[in-house]
Design a protein around this nucleic acid. Structure first.
Length: 318
DNA sequence: TATCCAAGGTAAGTT
DNA sequence: AACTTACCTTGGATA
């Protein structure tokens, strides 16, 4: 086993692991000690989180070496909050995971600079204040694509459960620390399953979407990472060729995997925010409403504001 | 205990 | 091109 420590003093701006991993941007991490999402969100706990990552190349740096040399189990926890000068991330893995963690958790972002670029609007300020240190993520592209195809009309906790079952049922097993983990399935592994087998995992009507999208990727007809070198709206359009992917899911993949920080997924919570706080942004169609709210949320980093607002509104009643 | 409802939308069919 | 409708599943609310 390899282990390491990332001092958070070396990171630009604050960091909050729990908010980052449990805010509904990624469904590929699991809380090690208890069932993630099965209980109300209690911030401040120093939980261990685990994920399994296959070798993949950073979408924005295609000439770089893969982030891990082999399928890797990564276990990480945060010790100390943003105000603690000794705060740190502790990790355990079968490989050197520091570069991988920096990528997945966007530790290379300068969060203070991003906040400086965000408009001074009370809703945004409140959300940033409540979840200070939350960062966006960079999920592996194919797993992110499948996750958000599964997200249609579905609760956060159940989306997470679907991804865990997909890995457990169809992904390669990886031995680590005396236990057996499962990587998220490859496009080939999912393409080889039947709609019925996917429905057995409670994917419902999303099952054929996932199967057919996996086929498109496995057959080489398209790959989500190929959207990266396009202009933002063209990249969104490119992703809608996958089955079960409309503008909203496409925006999620652009934001949570491919590093398009200007993407603002227009989900039900953001639609509510538009109605309650920014009614002038409602333009009657996705493209124009998206442009308007993107402007309102700070343009190039609008996706950061979106994700804070999403999490803020979704957890308001708790 | 039974019934109802809504959950990070999308595809397919109509006008 | 704009507008409707069907779609799986299930935890939690309501009666």
């Amino acid at each position: 086993m390899e282990t390491g420590v990332v001092p958070l003093a070396a990171v630009d701006g604050a960091f909050d692991l729990q908010a980052t991993v449990e805010s509904g941007q990624t469904y590929l991490w699991d809380r090690a000690d208890d069932g993630m999402y099965d209980q109300p969100i209690a911030h401040g706990g120093d939980h261990w989180y685990e994920t399994v990552v296959r070798p993949f190349t950073p979408p924005r740096d295609p000439d770089a070496a893969p982030l891990v040399p082999e399928p890797a189990v990564v276990r990480v926890r945060q010790v100390g909050d943003a105000d603690d000068p000794d705060a740190r991330l502790e990790w355990e893995s079968n490989v050197d995971a520091e570069r991988l963690l920096t990528h997945l958790l966007r530790l290379d972002d300068d969060l203070d600079a991003i906040l400086d670029d965000t408009p001074d609007v009370s809703l945004l300020a409140d959300a940033y204040d409540r979840f200070r240190g939350m960062r966006l993520v960079r999920d592996p592209p194919f797993a992110c694509l499948v996750s958000f195809i599964c997200s249609a009309q579905m609760r956060v906790s159940r989306i997470h459960g679907m991804q865990m079952r997909l890995a457990e049922s169809f992904g390669d097993s990886v031995a680590f620390d005396g236990e057996t983990y499962h990587a998220f399935p490859t496009p080939e592994q999912l393409a080889a399953r039947t709609e019925s087998e996917l429905r057995d995992l409670s994917l419902g009507y999303r099952a054929p979407y996932v199967q057919r999208t996996a086929e498109l990727v496995a057959d080489g007809e398209a790959h989500p990472a190929a959207a990266t070198d396009r202009e933002y709206e063209a990249a969104r359009e490119y992703l809608t060729q996958f089955v079960g992917v409309g503008n909203k899911v496409a925006d999620c993949v652009l934001l949570f995997s491919l590093g398009f920080l200007e993407a603002v997924p227009l989900d039900t919570w953001i639609q509510t925010a538009i109605g309650d706080y920014f009614p002038d942004c409602e333009q009657g169609n996705y493209t124009d409403t998206s442009r308007a709210i993107r402007e309102q949320f700070g343009g190039a980093v609008a996706g950061y504001a979106q994700t804070y607002v999403f999490y803020y509104l979704r957890t308001r009643s708790e």
